[in-house]
Amino acid sequence: MTMIKKTPKQSTLQGIKSLFVGLKVTGRNFVMPQITTHYPRKEVSNLATYRGHVDLVPKEDDPMTSKCILCGQCAKACPSNCIELVIRKEEVEPPPDEEAQPDSGSKEEATAKSAPKKKKVKRILDAFMLNYNLCSLCGQCVQTCPVDSLEFSTNSYLAGFTREEFIFDLLERMRNKQKASSSG
């Protein structure tokens, strides 16, 4: 089906002709419209599909809290350990407020041990720290999240002078975004 071919040989005349054929291609392209984008004045059109760092997804009914159930799977799955969940424990009165934390601490062994029997311990997400300096954008955190509380941002214009600028609190980011969208 396939054949081992021979490379085509060229005579001198063909060679000289090839130079003019090449020039013709160059000439044709010379009069074609510009295909590059002059960046600060214009933007490329493909930014919507860019997969940047992760962002937390808010709950549908309560836009100020995230869907996160604090299971810590994303932090475990991350190859470069750039996710850290800052969790605050709060004791609540016996009739616990179920809707705020539906899955509170069912999986985490630490709380299971320390939880006192009479009072239920509510675990609250204080901050969701992402160290974007280390992130390799592999998407393992998004894939492992059991409740789809992480999504990729399309933020491609990130620049900063220090490393600290790239340590994000995603919870704060999410709230700021929600505030901005609700007020504006």
């Binding site: 060229q10 060679g15 090839s18 054929v21 090449g22 291609v25």
Partner: peptide, 10 residues
């Protein structure tokens, strides 16, 4: 046209 057949490349 532009490159492969070009004499200089050959």
């Amino acid at each position: 046209d532009l490159v492969t057949d070009n004499m200089i490349l050959r």
